[in-house]
Simulated assay, not measured.
Amino acid sequence: MGKSMVGFCGGYDMYISGKPYEIQAFFEAIKQLALTTPNDMDWSLVLDRLYMRYVRFEDIDKTKQIMDYCKINLTKEEDEESTNVFLMYFRHFFSSVSSAISLYETFGQYRPIKISVVDLPWYIIEEKRPLEEYDQLDGEPLWLREYTEEEVERLSNL
């Protein structure tokens, strides 16, 4: 059962960002930047937590700082989304952050910032997945995996 679109989610919002391989290429560019940048940033917040799991509430500020750094280094001021799709991904990420913080401040509820399948009905099914399953992930992120019938059944019944 295939997934066709994934995107950044957080708080009230979800953004259709692109095909899984496109988001993967975005993170590959971030990984290359991390490998060539001598600094003291905790890259695992982006290359593990955001890419594969979700951003913990207490890590939002540090994750934003790293993504700001990535945006400065992976885009140019004169770029537009039509010529550099990374701008859209950064916009979706920062909008998800704002939405997650707003929801938390308004209702005391944190709906984590993450990358998820955004196609319906998969998004609805994925929203039922407990965060513990993200924390225990090995291998590739859930948004890159195919759903099995058993998994769809299990998540549908949560």
Rank of each mutant, 00 (worst) to 15 (best):
V152S: 00
D68W: 12
V117T: 12
T37K: 00
E127R: 10
E133A: 02
W143C: 06
Y12V: 04
C70M: 13
L155M: 08
S156V: 05
Q24H: 09
G11E: 05
D68H: 14
K76G: 12
M14Q: 13
E126F: 04
K62V: 03
R56P: 03
R111P: 00
Q32M: 09
N84E: 05
F86P: 00
T63V: 08
M5I: 02
E28P: 01
L33S: 08
E149Y: 04
F27W: 08
I124H: 01
M52Y: 11
H92S: 10
S156W: 07
S95E: 15
V118L: 05
R91T: 10
M41R: 13
G7Q: 01
P130N: 01
S102A: 15
I115V: 14
Y21Q: 13
E105I: 06
W43Y: 14
S17F: 00
D61A: 09
V152P: 00
E151D: 11
L87R: 11
S44Y: 10
E151Y: 07
S82A: 06
Q24C: 00
K76T: 14
G139R: 07
P38H: 07
E133D: 10
Q24Y: 11
Y12Q: 04
Y110C: 05
G108T: 02
W122S: 01
G11R: 02
L142Q: 11
L35M: 15
Y134M: 10
A34V: 02
Y54G: 01
R154Q: 09
Q32I: 03
G139S: 09
R49G: 00
F26V: 08
L35E: 15
T75A: 06
D61Y: 11
N39H: 04
D138M: 11
G2N: 15
Y15L: 10
P141L: 11
S102I: 07
S99Y: 07
E146Y: 13
M5P: 00
Y123V: 09
M1P: 11
K76A: 15
L144F: 12
E153M: 10
R154W: 08
Y89N: 10
L35I: 07
E140C: 08
D138A: 06
D48M: 12
L144E: 15
S99E: 12
V85S: 12
F8R: 03
E150R: 03
L137G: 05
L131D: 11
W143Y: 09
E81A: 05
R145H: 08
K114V: 02
I72M: 15
Y54L: 01
Q24V: 04
L137E: 12
C70V: 09
K64F: 00
E58I: 14
Q109C: 06
Y69R: 07
I66A: 05
I66P: 02
I115C: 10
K62H: 10
S82D: 13
K19E: 15
Q136A: 06
K128Q: 07
I30C: 01
N157A: 07
D59K: 03
K128A: 01
E105P: 03
T63W: 07
S44F: 09
L103N: 12
V118P: 01
N73Y: 12
S4W: 14
D40P: 00
R53Y: 04
T37S: 09
V97M: 02
V46T: 05
